[in-house]
Design a protein around this nucleic acid. Structure first.
Lengths: 350, 350
DNA sequence: CTGAAAGCGCTTACAG
DNA sequence: CTGAAAGCGCTTACAG
């Protein structure tokens, strides 16, 4: 390796052009070059032209890293997202990135296999001097305090901190489940089962408890709950488990997300020989693309992802501009999708 | 705003601790602090402890941006991915990010609505001093030259440059289609139609031409090709368009991806009243999750995403270490999935 | 409008 | 092993 460094063969000049190089070529000061590349800075037309010509000639590009060091604004934000979230919500990351990009902000991406890895990831975001963080993983008080001490604004996506200790953008999971349950009850369903999501998912917890609460309001207190992990396969297994536990399928199965609802339908049809929705109603949550496939046409609640991502971007940028601003929570109502996987009464309200 | 800056109320000290702060507290030089945080640098046990204690006390975190400025290694790589790719391949981005993260590299994410936006995105990656780029968008010779001149290694994901002008990791689209066509022909299918992907997708072009070539080798030269855009809906419309053009469904429909194959199946069953695969065989490509749903069980070719992402990461890091290395292409064979959406002969070879 | 100079927070030869 | 010093590529008061 040491020897390699000495040889000149094939070694092109890899040094990047700097503002000094441009200044020398244009016969102006380095500060002048800097000003030309800063929007809104004072520079004469003549200066501008000379500098731009020189910059163009040697392929100069301002070093955003060096700029960030001195302005203390990296113009990068960290996005922390779990594998699951991107799997079932690929639109989210794309829209978030596009939205930030439109505002001149870059996205430094961090994916989590498990939410427990969050501490080390947070450490990395800070080392890279992000201006803010969007996280689709829950942060505990200590973590929120740490970010607050570091002066980094955070927006939680589909998570809520205890005591509203953080800015958050959410879909109203409980209200969505309440809608689903109300429609099912209204249509005469009496026996219910639930396939929940992973234990460490607050979204799943909210959905499940939202459904249970509304069921209880209707006097339904005996509900079989089996555990899934958001995957299609776990929905499939969930249906079989319910059948096993009850000796038969209930009137309705409430899955904590669409993927599991589809898995549940597959198991009902293929293994248990039960028609959906004739023999059993199945409802999901999310409004993913597959929910609209002709074979499923899920009864579900769609999250307004576009509105939620815009709210997230707005909120984070606002907090970056003004770090002292108080916390805000924006809770978006989901869009009911009547679908065909559940027997609902024709004129059931929304 | 000017007035706001003056007021001290509620203004906490947002200045981050630097290596100088740590040095002062620990009573050592700033260089010593730097060494303690650099793995493999010389520092006595005593020094190490004092520095770490001081750093911990004031919450010091090395500034990765400043480090990058001087080492000329940002430890960030740029990932350029189209909306479509993330939509149908959410696993890709997650695995890529995880894999880079395991090697201490951060991912700066850039999403493309259209592949034409690539120029400005490339400009941004360079301004942020990424050490390398993974792109799932095609680059032309000028763009490759520009990156080469800037000394930034690139690996193309599922794209190939003209004359193998760039490092690339691909799934063998043509060979995959050849397998599908061979099995269909072998099972007696005679009339074929194709639903292609978007025009600007080289993957779609390769798949379509791969299928056409193999069909032609079998003497099938009259093939109806309709245009889709990779979406489920366009597959649905594609099926209707084929029916309209031919007056009937062909023996087999070859869709350029799984999502369109599923859309095609939905249209065949729901609108055209045709059983799949009894009345019409439908094949896809990709091996997405929904391809395995009981209602579809697609006959398709699965891309070995995990192996491809690993190859991508390995190749890019290798090129970062040694920029003078020659180009390499790694072409991965897809995994045939026999499924149930096409009538194949029992013992059809692979 | 323009330039000289200081400084952002680090790393890295170079001496000791 | 440790410290003083230079420098990475910028921005930004401060004079002129």
């Amino acid at each position: 390796m040491t020897r390699d460094n000495r040889q000149q063969v094939g070694k092109r000049d890899t040094r990047r052009a700097t503002s000094y190089d441009v200044a020398r070529l244009a016969g102006v000061s380095q500060s002048a070059v800097s000003r030309v590349f800063k929007t809104g800075a004072s520079a004469s037309q003549k200066m501008r032209e000379r500098v731009l010509a020189a910059a163009n000639e040697i392929g100069y590009r301002p070093n955003a890293i060096a700029r960030g060091l001195i302005t203390k604004r990296s113009n990068m934000i960290g996005v922390v997202i779990s594998r699951m979230t991107n799997l079932y919500y690929p639109e989210l990351l794309v829209q978030l990135t596009q939205s930030f990009s439109d505002r001149g902000i870059r996205v430094l991406l961090f994916t989590l296999e498990h939410e427990s890895e969050i501490d080390v990831v947070l450490e990395h975001t800070l080392q890279y001097q992000v201006d803010g963080i969007v996280t689709a993983a829950i942060l505990d008080s200590a973590q929120l305090d740490m970010l607050d001490a570091a002066g980094i604004p955070v927006v939680l996506y589909n998570r809520q901190a205890k005591d509203a200790q953080a800015a958050a953008v959410c879909c109203d999971q409980e209200e969505g489940e309440a809608w689903l349950v109300s429609r099912l009850i209204e249509a005469g369903h009496q026996r219910f089962a639930i396939i929940s999501g992973p234990e460490d998912s607050t979204v799943s917890t909210q959905r499940t408890s939202g459904a249970l609460r509304r069921l209880s309001e209707f006097g339904v207190n005996e509900v079989t709950v089996v555990a899934g992990d958001y995957s299609h396969e776990s929905g499939f297994r969930g249906a079989l488990e319910i059948q096993e536990l009850l000796g038969a399928l209930p009137d309705a199965v409430i899955a904590a997300n669409d993927a599991m609802a589809i898995g549940c339908i597959d198991a009902a049809r293929e293994v248990l020989g039960a028609q959906v929705p004739e023999a059993v109603s199945v409802v999901g949550f999310d409004g993913i693309g597959a929910a609209e496939y002709a074979a499923y046409q899920l009864t579900t609640v769609r999250q307004p992802v576009a509105r939620m991502t815009h709210a997230t971007v707005d909120m984070l940028l606002q907090r970056i501009e003004n770090p002292e601003i108080g916390h805000e929570q924006r809770i978006f109502q989901g869009t009911p999708v009547r679908g065909r996987s559940a027997r609902l009464t024709e004129d059931g309200g929304t």
